[in-house]
Amino acid sequence: MPTITITNLYNREIFSEDTEKSVLQLIHENEIDWMHACGGKGRCTSCKMIVEEGMEQMSEISSPEKRYRNQGRLRTNERLCCQTTIKGDIKIRVAKVNKFPHIDYSN
């Protein structure tokens, strides 16, 4: 069962057998607030996650992600939660620019 660990949310873990849902959907199903200004449609970078481990466990990079990388808006260790599904364990963190003021982050 794939596990998402959000390291700067006190290593909060999300477990799911559903490999069809996006990381953003899985995060929201577990009642964690995560920025997504465009509603999870790949039209912005507000849902980006910094990937610490498990890039190889993620779906292939999407067209919107390629476009943002070419524009310099998405680094090679970043993915969009709304565009990414997983097949194995990953460790991610919330980007500083996308943190919510009402959430206590661990680092």
Rank of each mutant, 00 (worst) to 15 (best):
T85H: 08
V23K: 02
I103K: 02
Y105F: 09
M58V: 08
R93F: 02
P101Q: 03
P2V: 10
I90M: 06
L24M: 14
K87C: 02
V97G: 01
Q25V: 07
P101F: 03
T5D: 02
M55V: 03
P2T: 07
H36G: 11
I32E: 01
K21W: 00
N11K: 13
E17I: 04
K21I: 01
T76A: 12
S22N: 11
T84V: 10
M58P: 07
I61V: 15
E29S: 11
R12K: 15
L74R: 10
E20F: 08
A37I: 04
L80V: 11
I27T: 04
R43V: 05
I61G: 03
D33T: 08
I61P: 01
I61E: 15
L9A: 08
S62H: 07
R93S: 15
S106G: 05
C81R: 02
E29W: 00
N11R: 11
E17M: 03
T7Q: 11
E53D: 15
T45K: 05
G39I: 04
I61L: 13
T84N: 08
E56M: 03
S59G: 14
E20C: 08
L80M: 15
E65V: 11
M35T: 03
M58E: 06
S16M: 05
I103L: 13
T45C: 14
A95L: 12
D33A: 12
K48N: 06
S46D: 10
C82R: 09
R69G: 09
G88R: 08
Q83D: 10
E20L: 13
V51N: 05
Y68D: 04
N11T: 00
P101V: 06
